[in-house]
Amino acid sequence: MKLTRRSFLAVTGASPFALTRGVCLGREGCLVLVSGARGLSESAAGYLQSSGHASSRTPMTPGRAATVVVPAAIIDRSSSRRLRDAAWSGQSVLVEVGLAFVDDTEAGVQRSLLADAFDVGVREVVHLWHEGRSRMPYVRYDWPVAAWVRDYSRAVVLDAPGWRVIAEIEGRPVAVRRRVGRGALTILGSPLGPALRAGDREAVTWFAAFLDGAAASHAFSG
C-alpha cells in the first residue's frame, strides 16, 4: 500500500483518531484506519482493496463514515476511547485485534485496553498451523453472512460475555459483536485483511455484507 507523505499528513492531521501510523479513506462510507501490528501491513492493504480505496478521491471526515475499520489494531488509550465513542454516536466500528503479532509486553497492553475500553477479554492466543495438521483451521462466520475463511496463522480467542459470537474456530469464539449506543462494535480475533488481499471469495463476500449492513444502519439512524 502506498501513501504519499502529503496525503498521509493531510488525513492524519484532520483525524480525531490518533492511531499509530495514519488514516486512509476507503469508498464512501468506509474509513480504514491504518494502525498496524508490525508484519501485518497486508491486512490494511486487504481492507483498503476491498473498500475501494483506489477509487476514492474525496477526503471524508471520520464522523461521516458509516464504518470505521482498524486492521491489525495496535491502539492506545485515547484511540480506544474514540473508537468506542464513534460506535456510541452511530458508526459501525470493526477492530481487528493485532495483539497476536506483537511482543509480549505490547500484547499485555493491548489486552488491558481491550478489556477496559470494550469489555472484551482475551482467553488465549492460539497457533493454529503446525506440522502434521490434517484439518484446515477455518474461521467460520455466521454473521452477517455465513463464510469460511482460512485463518492467517494465529488467532485471538475472545472472552466476551454479553456479546454475540459471530465467528468460531474449532469451537472457540474469535469474533464478537454488540450494539453500542446508536452504533455497533465488532471485534475480530483472526485477521481478515490478509484473506481480503488474497481475494478469498468468502472473505470478500463477508466484508461486503458487513459494509452494506453498516451503511444501511447508518442511513437509518440518520
Binding site: S134, R135, M136, Y138, W148, R150, R201, E202
Partner: peptide, 13 residues
C-alpha cells in the same frame, strides 16, 4: 492427498 482438508475446502466453497 490431505482428504480432511479437501473435504473442508469443499464445504467452505
Amino acid at each position: 492427498n490431505n482428504w480432511p482438508a479437501i473435504h473442508d475446502a469443499f464445504k467452505k466453497v
